[in-house]
Amino acid sequence: MVTTMPTLIDHLIKLTDHRDRELLDLTLAKALLDLTSIQRVVIARLMVDEEQKRWLDKVTLDAGGGGKVVDPLRADFKRLPRLDDEPDRVRCLQENAEIELAWAGQDGPRIYFYPLLDEVRDDERGVLEVHAGSVLDDGARLIIDQIHRVYRNMHVLLAYSDHDPLTGLLNRKSLDDTFYSAVLEELTSTSPGAGASTPSSAPQDAKPAEPERRHRVPPNYWLATIAVDHFQLLNDKHGHLLMEENTLLITRIMNNTFRTHDRLYRLGGDRFAALFHCPEESSAQNLLERLRDSIERFNFPQLSRVTVSIGFTRIQSDDTPDAALERSEQAIDYVQRNGYNQVCSHAGLLRRGFFGLVQRSGSVDVFQ
């Protein structure tokens, strides 16, 4: 049986075939390794937490077949390299241009740094790092430029389709994809999950199989739903435009409370959601209490005081977004029947005997 190496067209098709932005990074790295003689590709993302900036090597692939893909949700932020530990990456972002580093003589190995994306928020910035055994020729540079442009264009298109136009947060439609890719889905042969390795025995030109969901008990992922208290009354009293302005302020508080790699959503109207990783229930409770307190103490224009009710749940084995949302909604229902402006864990309410097991809604979308 005759096998052929993947062509530029083959990889362009793969790059434009994704609905998940997380898989774009892996596809970009594989394309560059297949189509050029480079030795390694690293895609490094800038991570921001409480104004500290660090580097996460999200994708690292070698020409020999080794490498890893790291889930940002599970990265230990404090163990990552600090921003200034990688001065060449910093210079690449500051100059918004290619940086060439010759680290073993004029004709020896090179590292090329490229700004990963163009015109993005600080918390989405990153660097494409290409390691080569010698100076790249014009043909290799052209291929890198072409593939990189397609990657950028696809990133922009997918970002437009899966974000809420008012707040810039992820929208309800994107929750299904990010839920499975971050929490429950392990892809055949390569995975965007935490610490996943790329098998060295997998042929570089093999066509990836359809994603196969292998459910497992996820390690401490949580889904929280945040409801603005008395939202409709406030909207009727103060008007739609003012409520949009205050929705943006709530979004800012959420962005300042959560880490940049946590997934934040606007589900529509008065509802927000967060998908995040915490070691235990008490840590998740404390994080959400901090959010609730920050919103309560903020001086909103013309409204003065706004409060939120928050329900959250641990993601379970064989879970679905609808089932997890339903549990967090049950917790919010309890909060709103008992005074609003509180944070409640669904599991905590179960332990206290307030309601029985949740009846899953199947494919029904809670927020349609």
Rank of each mutant, 00 (worst) to 15 (best):
N338Y: 13
T320Q: 03
V358T: 15
V90H: 00
E296L: 00
L32S: 04
L35V: 06
L26M: 10
D365I: 00
C92V: 09
P219C: 05
L12S: 13
R89T: 09
F355H: 09
M1D: 14
I295L: 03
S134W: 07
D365G: 05
Y160Q: 11
R89F: 15
I295G: 01
K30E: 15
E98V: 08
H148E: 05
R89E: 13
T36S: 07
Y334E: 10
L233V: 10
I250C: 03
A104Q: 12
E329V: 06
A206M: 08
I13G: 08
A273F: 06
E289R: 03
G268N: 13
G126F: 03
N220Y: 14
L73S: 08
Q94G: 06
G126A: 01
H155C: 08
E280T: 05
E281V: 05
H346I: 07
S189Q: 13
D164A: 04
F77K: 00
T178N: 15
L357R: 12
T27H: 06
I226A: 02
P218I: 09
T260L: 01
N220E: 15
K14P: 12
A284K: 03
F298H: 09
D62L: 02
D162M: 10
S283N: 10
P6I: 06
D107I: 00
Y112P: 05
R45C: 12
L15A: 08
H261C: 05
Y114S: 01
L83Q: 02
T251S: 04
E296A: 05
T257D: 11
D293R: 00
C344E: 09
L23H: 05
P87M: 06
R121Q: 14
V120H: 04
R216L: 11
T167L: 01
F272I: 03
T320P: 06
F113N: 01
L157P: 08
D293I: 02
T60N: 09
Y180I: 06
H155S: 09
K58W: 07
L56Y: 03
R216M: 12
W103S: 01
L166K: 00
Q52K: 08
H277T: 05
V306C: 08
R351D: 15
T247E: 10
